[in-house]
Amino acid sequence: MADNIGPDGETLLGIYRRAALLKANDERSRKVITTGRLVMPYYSYRGQEIIPSALCASLTDDDYLVTIYRGIHDMLAKGMPLNDLWAEIAGRVDGTCKGKGGPMHLTYPKKGIMVTTGIVGSSMPIANGLAWGSQLSGNNRVAVATFGDGASNIGAFHESLNMAAVWKLPVIFLCQNNLYGEHTAYEKATSAKQIADRAAGYSIPGVRVDGNDPVEMYRMAREAIDRARAGEGPTLIEAMTFRFHGHVFGDADGYMDKAQKAAAMEADPVPRLRRKLIDEGIATEEQLAQIEADIEESIDAAVEFALASPLPELSELTTDVYGEAA
């Protein structure tokens, strides 16, 4: 691996800014749901923050993202504004999708957030199409599909990797391996020792990386993005991570190994990056505290903005089903 691709201190600080936002936003989401102010299916991404935070250090607003129900971390890292996000998950007219998509279908093309799917495995075929669009127009944009470990067992994964390989599409398949698919542990569902190995079946590069390590994650993502931009085709990245709070909000985690979970939470990647920034002299305690205070303030404002935003008119039930024929 080329050593000169960083990340430098400024990039690491940028990764931390995103990761701190993601962490705080997840904590607030669970709190707001617990107190009954909002009702929704919520798939916590707590523990997986570093992956998109490091990925997005090398993406532009024009690059495409297709993410999944457990994907609010991906969207925030890609630049979805907090107000629009919160208004959407509150089902309000000021939401990204006028309240018609909800937490599993947040969409924000202005920042390249093209599709969010609630169907396991379905991010990949569509990301291929976005990448095909880039290839056709030669606009140099890459597409990233994120998905879970469980999704690597569904047909769409295999169809997509094969097509992307044959067509040399500028796409990155980013698997966030949190060791569980719903309640089922990785080994009980997945034949491959590691998902990255599956890339070999499609003659594309496949790498397993510690997704909780910002340096490793940044470098692997950067290499894959550079490769895609250079017209050298797709990459499968398997980013190892852990899901702190079960599959969906309210899940009591009875099926999880308690020691494994405790160890993962003990190694929480976000405070770990925070310590690293201070230890390496990249940022001061005061600087980081200020960043975190600003984040809390912007989330406060977003929650209030969302709850003050009007609910949609019932006429919205039948709008946006079809467009106007030209």
Binding site: T96, K100, T107, P109, M114, V115, T319
Partner: peptide, 8 residues
Amino acid sequence: RFMSGGQT
């Protein structure tokens, strides 16, 4: 189209 509120 519908789920994106007409954005896509």
